[in-house]
Amino acid sequence: MSFFQRFIERMFLNPVNSDAFAPEVMFKIPNTALTRMLHIANAPVKSSVTTTWVIIIALTIFSWLATRNLKEQPKTASLQNVAETFVESMRGLVGTTMGPEMKKFTPYIGTLMIYLTIANLVGIIPGKDLFHLYTPTADLNTTAALGAITFVNIHFFGIKSKGITSYFKGYFEPLPFMFPLNVIGSLADPVSLSFRLFGNMIGSVVIMGLLYSVMAVIIPGIASIYFDVFAGVLQAFIFTMLTMTYISMEME
């Protein structure tokens, strides 16, 4: 049976259960007085969340190792030099995209960029299934949370920059009857960010899962260079660039 016959059979005649591509439930939050009060008792904690915890721990350890023995002239291959190169690159990107006066956003934008890049590249980690790692950005809950953070930043700094009166006045421009459309447009930005990132990453997870199920490891490994590496880095860059654009536009 040819590859295309196996692929068609897998896709349409004997499709994989959609749950096979969803994050698995790792454990549930204990049912206690506190969790009941917070309405999170027995809430499932999925592998997308635990993978995010692993990424946070890994970045924390890297940051500690890179800054524990700071030097004015770090060695070329040292972790401090790698960290400084990344920080300077992000400062340049933020300054170019948002303006020199907006470099205060470098910590947030840099954190967003490095988290998204690592999260999107989880699919290429050897043994990820063994360690129950799942691409966090292939879970709509993760991308929706990131979109919500961007939404808060957009409007918080918009109000801080313009003042609350001028900020709300902008919703009635250029004509008062445009108010509903301006509100919808404002709400659509974080939603489009969330669904764009989620759609691309869940698409990569599904396609690679199907390829690994019908072909030898080597060929899907080559496809992974595009679907996991190239698409993952590209989507992280797009999300970050749009975040900077939305914030700077609201502050103008």
Rank of each mutant, 00 (worst) to 15 (best):
I202S: 09
Y212R: 13
L70I: 12
E173D: 08
A77K: 12
K75Y: 01
M102Q: 15
N182Q: 08
L70Y: 01
F4L: 15
G158H: 07
V49C: 09
P180K: 10
Y171C: 05
I114D: 02
G92V: 03
S78H: 11
A22F: 02
V25D: 05
I159T: 03
A83N: 10
F21A: 01
M241Q: 11
F105S: 08
D189G: 06
K128E: 07
T76Q: 11
L193E: 09
K103Q: 15
T111S: 14
F12H: 06
T96L: 14
N69R: 14
S186T: 15
L121D: 07
A145E: 00
P126W: 01
I247S: 04
P220Y: 04
L146C: 04
M113A: 14
M215F: 06
T150L: 10
L181F: 15
S2R: 10
T85L: 07
R36F: 06
L79G: 02
V205N: 06
V94R: 05
T137M: 07
N42R: 11
A231D: 09
Y167C: 04
K162Q: 15
I247Q: 03
V205M: 05
L211Q: 05
I56W: 08
I219H: 02
G95D: 02
I184H: 03
Y134T: 03
Y115G: 01
T97Q: 12
V94D: 05
L59Q: 14
E252V: 14
S192H: 04
F198P: 11
P74I: 04
I184D: 00
F62Y: 15
N42S: 12
T51K: 05
M244G: 12
L211D: 05
I159P: 03
